[in-house]
């Protein structure tokens, strides 16, 4: 499970000065649940997820993932997390199989186990045709499947997705969403960021709306609808954000 406690992150930018990318964000995600982080570009989604994945250290606040604190036990956190983002590319000169095996090794898996899990994942994701092709020769959809297999090789309890459908065509995007729901079905704790309203409606159990680094509101879709008096996700979002800007 994921527990963010007053997470904040500031960047010192030479041109823009101090940037409060994430400010006092707290939320909880339970196993078997998909938590949607909805926000426009620059809202702070990627920074929040990087804090959870220990790629960045929080300026203040902390997060506890599967019982480990991101600040004090980052390696233990990463051992339980699968992180998939548009910015996590594949090694072009490795084959899909080698790519998956490399991350299996870094997770401390033994070679026979890596081979066995790769075979199973390849079957599940229908990767057998291109498993031994170099990653730089794969199509976007194939790359995405390889990335998914890479995040799953150690069977993580927590999955973090940062706009995983960005730049994918309709079919590939649907496959990714199906896979995200599969993770929930297997009891994983899932956090999913997006700026696409319809995706939230399709997959998320709970939604947090993030804007300017702050979590404006969170709850189930029904709760948010009740709070704003709107039915459509887009209307809910616009109302919350304009209320914040006015305040």
């Amino acid at each position: 499970m994921i527990e963010a406690r007053h997470l904040s992150k500031t960047f010192a930018d030479r041109k823009r000065g101090t940037i409060h990318a994430v400010q006092d964000v707290s939320f909880q995600v339970e196993p078997g649940q998909i938590y949607g982080l909805l926000g426009a570009n620059g809202a702070g989604k990627t920074t929040t997820l990087r804090l959870l994945a220990t790629l960045l250290r929080p300026s203040s606040g902390t997060a506890v993932i599967g019982g480990h604190d991101v600040g004090t036990a980052p390696e233990a956190v990463r051992r339980q997390v699968g992180f998939l983002a548009a910015s996590t590319a594949l090694y072009g000169r490795l084959t899909a199989r080698e790519m998956i095996a490399y991350f299996g090794r870094l997770h401390g898996l033994a070679e026979p186990e890596i081979a066995q899990r790769t075979t199973r994942l390849a079957a599940e994701l229908e990767m057998d045709d291109f498993l031994d092709r170099r990653c730089d020769s794969l199509s976007t959809g194939m790359k995405q499947k390889t990335s998914i297999a890479r995040t799953l090789i150690h069977d993580p309890a927590v999955m973090i997705f940062d706009e995983p459908t960005l730049g994918l065509d309709v079919m590939a995007a649907r496959a990714v969403l199906r896979f995200v729901r599969d993770c929930r079905a297997r009891g994983k704790t899932v956090i999913y960021s997006t700026h696409v309203m319809s995706e939230v409606e399709k997959v998320c159990d709970r939604v947090g709306i993030i804007h300017g680094g702050r979590l404006l509101a969170e709850g189930t879709l029904a709760e948010l609808a009740a709070r704003t008096g709107q039915r459509d996700m887009e209307e809910i979002f616009v109302q919350l954000v304009t209320a914040e800007v006015a305040a």
Binding site: A53, L55, F83, A89, F103, G108
Partner: peptide, 14 residues
């Protein structure tokens, strides 16, 4: 440049 650094940093390797 190729965007693999972040992938590598997600691994539990110190």
């Amino acid at each position: 440049e190729r965007g693999t650094m972040e992938t590598l940093l997600c691994s539990p390797a110190a």
